[in-house]
Amino acid sequence: MQNWPFWIAGMALGAFVPLFAWTSGKLLGISSGYAEACALHKPAGSERWKLWFALGLPLGGLAATLARGEGEVASTSAALVEHFHVGNAGQYLLLALGGLLVGYGSRTAGGCTSGHSIVGIALGAKSSLVATIGFMLGGFAATWLLIALAGARA
């Protein structure tokens, strides 16, 4: 199986949101699953399902890889190396620092690309639209800064 065209993938992801709400009564989100992982020492509250949901994601990634007939293990993010001209150490630094900002930022904003950009905007939430504009501005800024730095070193 090949990857899907954008509109099939988008419609499937979009349809998943109300279907999940219809079966579970909940609005999906991922970054709060990380917050639940950080709260494992506390008794499980009403949000513990978010951790279970997040733990399912790797299984889905594995299934998609098998469906595409791939399955090789990769330790290098080729895109970062190619676009930003970083070595191995630089690559892992970008991934870890980027992850740190993603974790801090999503919990400050109260959501990530799934909970805000897809679910929240679909609900018509102003907070989610503003958050998503922030996501995009930050993403463009970081990407073009890295490209400029790569150019300056070349």
């Binding site: 992850g99 958050a131 890295l146």
Partner: peptide, 13 residues
């Protein structure tokens, strides 16, 4: 938070 998230999104892709 949105901009901080975005910066991390761009750095780590």
């Amino acid at each position: 938070g949105g901009v901080i998230f975005g910066l991390g999104w761009g750095l780590s892709a």
